[in-house]
Design a protein around this nucleic acid. Structure first.
Length: 471
RNA sequence: UGCCGCAUAGCUCAGUUGGCAGAGCAGCUGACUGUUAAUCAGCGGGUCAUAGGUUCGAGUCCUAUUGCGGCAGCCA
C-alpha cells in the first residue's frame, strides 16, 4: 500500500477495462437479488464511487461485513455503468475489509443527522457529506490564502503563540502557567477534581512573569514588516471571552497581513482583492462541494459568492453609515447616534438590507477603537476599517497604524496602558518608522461565508468554546 | 455574563383538556436480476434529561439542577 494510487476523485475518468482497487469507507449498500451496490467514499472529492458486486463474486459472509461506516478495499474492473448517475463503476472481483463498523452501534446513518448531534461525534463526522465538504473547502481556502500572499511577495512569518503582552486590548486572555496543577486524575470516579497552587510568586512561574495565549499576532507582525515590508501570519489565536454565539470560538485561526509603505486605502484594496481571490479560488477548485452547500445549506450561496467576486465592495465612512442608519426609518433596538459602536443589527441592516454585498466602513471614532490606530486630522476619528459581510457580519478588522512616536505615546497614556510594556513596539516608531497598515481576518468566519454553514463550530474540526474542550 | 427556547426509541421528531408511549429512518428477518437516501413485508427497540413537588392519576402542570441551542454583549 502506498499513497501513490488512484483515488476516488480520479476513478470517474478511468477507462473501462482497467483493473484497479478502490479504497475507502462505505456510505451505503443496496442489495437486490443476486447483486449488490456499494457506495465507497475516500474524502478525495465530494462524490462517492459505485461498486457493483455481481452474484457469487464475493462470499456472502464477507459481503455481510460491508455495512455503512466499514473501511474496505474493493478489487475489480472498471466498466461502463448502464445507469444514468455515473459513467463508470467498479465491477468487483475481490474484497478486503480493513475495519468493520457494527451497524447496531455505529452512530451515523445515511439519512441526515442534526449538526448538534454530529458535534458530539466530531471524530466521525468527516465521513459525512457535509463535513467532508467543509474540510475540503477549509484546506483549499488555506492553500488559496498562502498563494494569494506568495504571488504578491508577502513573506509568511510565524508570530508567537505565547505572549507576555497583557494589554493588547483585543479581548480576555488565557493565562499560561505551570503554577497550577490538577490534584486528582482527570478520570476521577466522581468526575470532580481540584487545583493545587504550586507557587504564588510570578518569578517562580515558568516564564518568570505572567504569560498568555496570543489574542493577535499583529504587534509582532508589525516588527517584521518594519524590515521585510510585506508579511503575513496565519495561525491559531485565543480569546477567553465567555461568549456563546454561533460566530465565536475560544480558539480560532486568523490571517494577519502587515504592510510597510501602505495607508488605509491600500489596506482596503488588499482586503477586497484578498476576499475576491480566495473565494474565486475555492469556486474554481471545489465546485462539487459548493454545489452541495448551495443545494442543502444556503440556497443563494453561489449567486452571492459570484456577486462578491465580480462587483466592487461598497466603501463608506463611519459617519456616512451613521447618517444612513439614522435616515433608514428602521426601529432599531439600540438607537443610532454618532459615537456609538455599531450593533449587530445596524451592521446587518447595512450589509443585508441597504447594500446587499460586502461593505467596508472606515474612520471610526477613536474612543471605540484600539490605541495603535492612526489618528485623523479631525482629532476625533482614526484610520480604522471593518469589512462587513452579509449573513455573518464583521469578517475583517484592520487599520493604518499610528507611526508617529508622540501620537502613539499619547494614545497609550490615554488608554491607561503602561508605556514600559510597549517599549519594543515604540522602538519601531523611534527608529526608522514608516507608514504601515494591516488587517486581521477570522478564517472560520470566512469559511462560514464561503460554505453557508450557520455555526462557526461546524467549520473547524474540533471546536473550543467555554465549557467545551472535547476530543 | 444576561434574556429566551428546547430535552420523548440509535437518529429526526409527533404526543390534543393531565387519563394504556407513537411515526419515519436506522437495526434484525425475509422478498425482489441494475440500485442511486432503492423498494416491499414482518419483528425487536423507552428510567419521556436529573431531583423534588401538585394530583386519584404527570411525557404533559410547578420548582431546582444539568446539558444543548438561539439572541445580545465582547470581537475575528
Amino acid at each position: 500500500m502506498d499513497y501513490r494510487r488512484t483515488y476516488v476523485r480520479d476513478l470517474f475518468a478511468a477507462t473501462p477495462g482497467t483493473e484497479i482497487s478502490v479504497f475507502g469507507w462505505v456510505k451505503t449498500r443496496r442489495d437486490s437479488k443476486g447483486i449488490s451496490f456499494v457506495q465507497v467514499s475516500d474524502g478525495s472529492c465530494f462524490r462517492d464511487f459505485q461498486v457493483v458486486v455481481p452474484a457469487g463474486a464475493i462470499p456472502d459472509a464477507e459481503l455481510a461485513k460491508v455495512s455503512t461506516g466499514a473501511c474496505v478495499r474493493f478489487d475489480g474492473t472498471i466498466v461502463e455503468s448502464p445507469a444514468a448517475l455515473q459513467a463508470v463503476e467498479l465491477s468487483a472481483t475481490g474484497l478486503e475489509v480493513f475495519g468493520e463498523a457494527d451497524p447496531q452501534t455505529y452512530p451515523l446513518q445515511k439519512k441526515g443527522a442534526s449538526f448538534e448531534f454530529l458535534r458530539e461525534i466530531a471524530h466521525l463526522r468527516a465521513r459525512g457529506n457535509t463535513f467532508g465538504a467543509v474540510f475540503r473547502v477549509r484546506a483549499q481556502a488555506a492553500q488559496a490564502i498562502n498563494e494569494f500572499f506568495h504571488h504578491r511577495g508577502f513573506h509568511y512569518i510565524h508570530t508567537p503563540i505565547i505572549t507576555a503582552s497583557d494589554a493588547e486590548g483585543a479581548g480576555a486572555m488565557f493565562q499560561v502557567t505551570t503554577a497550577l496543577e490538577a490534584n486528582a486524575p482527570l478520570e476521577a470516579p466522581d468526575g470532580h477534581f481540584s487545583y493545587r497552587l504550586k507557587t504564588v510568586n510570578p518569578s517562580d512561574d515558568f516564564f518568570g512573569r505572567p504569560a498568555y495565549l496570543t489574542v493577535s499576532g499583529q504587534l509582532n507582525a508589525e516588527t517584521l514588516a518594519m524590515g521585510m515590508t510585506n508579511v503575513y501570519t496565519f495561525g491559531p489565536t485565543f480569546r477567553a471571552e465567555n461568549s456563546s454565539t454561533s460566530r465565536h470560538l475560544a480558539e480560532f485561526w486568523m490571517v494577519e497581513p502587515e504592510m510597510a509603505f501602505c495607508d488605509l486605502e491600500g489596506d482596503m484594496n488588499l482586503a477586497e482583492e484578498f476576499l475576491k481571490e480566495v473565494i474565486g479560488n475555492v469556486l474554481d477548485h471545489c465546485g462539487d462541494d459548493l454545489a452541495f452547500f448551495n443545494q442543502r445549506i444556503e440556497p443563494q450561496l453561489l449567486t452571492t459568492l459570484d456577486h462578491v467576486v465580480n462587483s466592487p465592495f461598497e466603501r463608506l465612512t463611519y459617519t456616512e453609515a451613521v447618517a444612513m442608519l439614522e435616515a433608514s426609518g428602521e426601529n432599531f433596538e439600540f438607537p443610532v447616534a454618532w459615537g456609538i459602536d455599531l450593533q449587530s443589527e445596524h451592521e446587518r441592516w447595512l450589509t443585508d438590507v441597504k447594500v446587499g454585498r460586502p461593505v467596508i466602513l472606515t474612520d471610526y471614532p477613536k474612543e471605540i477603537k484600539a490605541f495603535y490606530m492612526r489618528a485623523n486630522d479631525d482629532g476625533r476619528t482614526v484610520r480604522a476599517m471593518d469589512v462587513l459581510a452579509p449573513r455573518i457580519g464583521e469578517i475583517i478588522g484592520g487599520s493604518q497604524r499610528e507611526e508617529r512616536l508622540g501620537h502613539l505615546e499619547a494614545r497609550i497614556d490615554e488608554a491607561g496602558l503602561p508605556r514600559a510594556a510597549y517599549s519594543w513596539y515604540l522602538d519601531l516608531r523611534r527608529y526608522g518608522s514608516a507608514p504601515h497598515a494591516g488587517f486581521g481576518l477570522g478564517f472560520e468566519r470566512l469559511l462560514m461565508y464561503i460554505t453557508g454553514m450557520k455555526n462557526i463550530r461546524d467549520v473547524i474540526p474540533y471546536h473550543r468554546t467555554s465549557g467545551n474542550a472535547e476530543f
